[in-house]
Amino acid sequence: MQHISVNVDGTQYEGDVEPRTLLVHWLRNEVGKVGTVVGCDTSNCGACTILMNGRSVKSCSVLAVQADGASVTTIQGISTGDDWHPVQTAFKECHGLQCGYCTPGMVMSAIDLLGENPNPSEAEIREGLEGNLCRCTGYHNIVRSVEKAAELMGGAK
């Protein structure tokens, strides 16, 4: 077992983990961050996307031990629920989700994307979300949502 200490959504969590434990499973099973979900075993779907030290990563492709000392933000850490992150607002406004399973990862990727490029073109949005699969929306309204979020965050033209 390895001892780790990780800041998750603003709170420091400590624990002992088996080295093979994936970060996503530690977040879900030990920290209780069940908003972050698992959709595949080949790092294609991106449903497990979180921010690690401020950048988007697939938490199924990081060992929990590798997150020792890191700061992690999950979908449950971007707003309190009473206040909404602009990306969350935009996804609701633009019907950017249906079943909602890809949504946590999609939102986290969108936050990363807009952090790097506050005013993305449609092509840049599509490329920026290429690591996240959605089977419900055909991406049309996800793209609209990210455009809307850029506007809400003050980046859009």
């Binding site: 790092s43 991106g46 996307t49 690690m52 950048r55 988007s56 990563v57 697939k58 492709s61 990081v62 990727s109 990363d112 994307l113 920026g128 290429e130 690591g131 996240n132």
Partner: peptide, 9 residues
């Protein structure tokens, strides 16, 4: 290469 998340790691 792959996608943004994978390029970050």
């Amino acid at each position: 290469v792959a996608d943004p998340q994978i390029r970050h790691r």
